[in-house]
Nucleic acid binder design. Structure first.
Length: 514
DNA sequence: TTCCGACAGTGGGGTCGCAAT
DNA sequence: ATTGCGACCCCACTATCGGAA
């Protein structure tokens, strides 16, 4: 199979908006793939590289020599398997001179590609395929190509951790082959994700009685234990075992022969309150001097689910049964605090206590939900308090993709009461409807004071109400603080910039959380 | 016919580790 | 030593499609 075949399929997929038509086009292409090519084809057409990452991003591609006009002789002859080999080599170079070597390999590759192939490669390498089909749509396409139920493909991909491998199995061995793929201790599966609810009462309306658990602001850990061997994986299935010795020790001490556990790891202060997320991230992200770091910033694990125990898979058991089994093997202080209730007042009190202790909020879990790996179902609902501020728009950046032509990303500032100036403390592009994007583009252009290719600076007059999850330290912004997960709620045309919130008010919110 | 779950897209800040400057 | 870059932690929200109700 040629790269050109994938590029033309991708173009066709991008040009139709109907999901069913995308699936049909992808399935047709997969059917023509040989058994050795199908995994690479699935990866490429769902916007990923088999190598996961090869050290090439936007800036590397930007610095490649400009392509010559017109396609070179022999362009369009590139085979998918050869492209895969070249990218393997790009990804495996390291050490001094590796960047130059990467550029050399990529330059040679691009010189042999048609314009359509180059566009496809660029988008693939930057992770911006923008054809309206990623893993989800591809799973359906694989099912269609292999003429098997989509649920079987998704199940195999969930347990194998890899849709491309499931595709090869589906096309080669059909349903019987897919059925043989199961949970293997030591091989991570997609973690179950939580939806959101506005408040505890709303969450309880969807399921009562329900279990409430503390929502902890750390990193997700999936722990596999087989005999004495322990492995720890992140939400994106990376192996971080070496960085989390505390987690390894906890798992090794459990009275089991094998288990797969789900939990959250975070740094706590000596008084038991959570340290800022930045400190947990720093600790769990560090590979060097782990033993020393451990003394300074110890991690605590809170387990909240059990997917496998001593040879038995549990993901198809109702949540409350998994929870009971977990409690039977884990020490009480290794469990996420939990309350089962159908009483809104008791639930509210539990949530308030979690917040008073400095945690993010609660997760409300249906008692009979199965472990829906990789899905953001309503079986789990997170509830977190939201802060809002009225801030001033001081600039905006042009959007990309479907937001091309609109001013999208707002530069937000708080008022400095001392100087009367506006102090930038972050950006946001979230929460806007198409209608609002069009409106703000027009309004901001009318306030424009200067502009470059990316950014339009404006007179600080528009006030916008912004919701956010918290205030964190920043080395990037002049006020030393920034907002976590800022999103637009609405414009406040009734307010002038002089009425906007002050930088002191922002800092006070940060202090209150400590 | 309407509703709603799943998906894709559009990007945010911080941190680490590596290579280049 | 410092800077630029890529990768990966955390993540919210809207638009759209298409099956469920």
């Amino acid at each position: 199979m040629r790269l050109l075949d994938l590029a033309t399929t991708s173009t066709a997929v991008a040009e139709t908006s109907a999901r069913s038509a995308k699936i049909a086009l992808l399935a047709e292409r997969l059917r023509t793939a040989g058994p050795e090519e199908v995994t690479v084809a699935v990866h490429y057409l769902s916007g990923e590289l088999p190598q996961r990452q090869i050290g090439v991003g936007w800036a590397t591609l930007r610095d490649l020599p400009a392509p010559v006009a017109g396609d070179a002789a022999g362009a369009g002859e590139l085979e998918v398997a050869e492209v895969d080999r070249i990218l393997d080599e790009v990804g495996s170079t390291s050490g001094a001179g590796s960047q130059a070597r990467r550029r050399e390999l990529l330059t040679a590759l691009f010189a042999r590609a048609t314009a359509e192939e180059q566009s496809f490669l660029r988008r693939l390498l930057t992770g911006e395929l923008r054809q309206g089909a990623l893993d989800g749509v591809m799973a359906d396409a694989v099912a269609k190509a292999a003429e098997v139920p989509a649920a079987e493909v998704r199940r195999a991909a969930m347990f194998g951790g890899d849709l491309a491998a499931a595709a090869r199995t589906a096309l080669r061995d059909g349903v019987p082959g897919l059925r043989e793929v199961g949970l293997v201790v030591g091989r991570p599966i997609q973690p179950m994700l939580a939806g959101t609810a506005d408040d505890v009462a709303a969450a309880l309306q969807k399921a009562a009685p329900a279990a409430l658990e503390w929502k902890l602001d750390g990193i997700r850990v999936q722990i596999h234990r087989a005999g004495d061997r322990v492995q720890v994986f992140t939400r994106s299935l990376d192996d971080i075992t070496d960085r989390l010795p505390e987690v390894v020790e906890l798992a090794r001490a459990l009275p089991v022969t094998s288990a797969v556990l789900d939990g959250e790891a975070l740094a706590l202060a000596p008084d038991g309150r959570p340290r800022p997320f930045q400190e947990t991230a720093s600790r769990t992200g560090s590979r060097r001097d782990v033993a020393k770091l451990r003394e300074q910033i110890p991690l605590t694990v809170f387990l909240f689910d059990l997917l496998h125990l001593d040879g038995r898979d549990l993901i198809d058991l109702p949540s409350h049964e998994r929870s009971d089994l977990l409690a039977s093997i884990a020490p009480p202080d290794g469990l996420a605090p939990r309350l089962v209730t159908d009483d809104p007042q008791a639930a509210e009190a539990f949530a308030k206590d979690a917040l008073d202790r400095g945690h993010e909020g609660v997760v409300v879990k249906s008692l009979d939900a199965l472990y829906t790996a990789g899905r953001r179902g309503s079986g789990w609902l997170k509830v977190k308090p939201v802060h809002t501020l009225d801030l001033v728009v001081v600039a905006a950046e042009w959007g990309h993709g479907r937001r091309s032509g609109w001013l999208s990303n707002l530069h937000l500032a708080a008022r400095d009461p001392e100087s009367g100036e506006f102090v930038m403390l972050g950006k946001t592009f979230k929460g806007m409807t198409d209608e609002l994007l069009a409106w703000q583009t027009e309004r901001l252009r009318a306030l424009q004071t200067s502009a470059d290719d990316w950014t339009v600076r404006v007179r600080p007059e528009l006030v916008v109400e912004v919701a956010f999850d918290g205030v964190q330290r920043s080395s990037r912004y002049p006020g030393g603080v920034t907002l976590r997960f800022a999103r637009v709620v609405r414009y406040r045309e009734d307010k002038r910039a002089q009425d906007a919130d002050t930088i002191d008010a922002v800092r006070a919110i940060g202090q209150a959380a400590q």
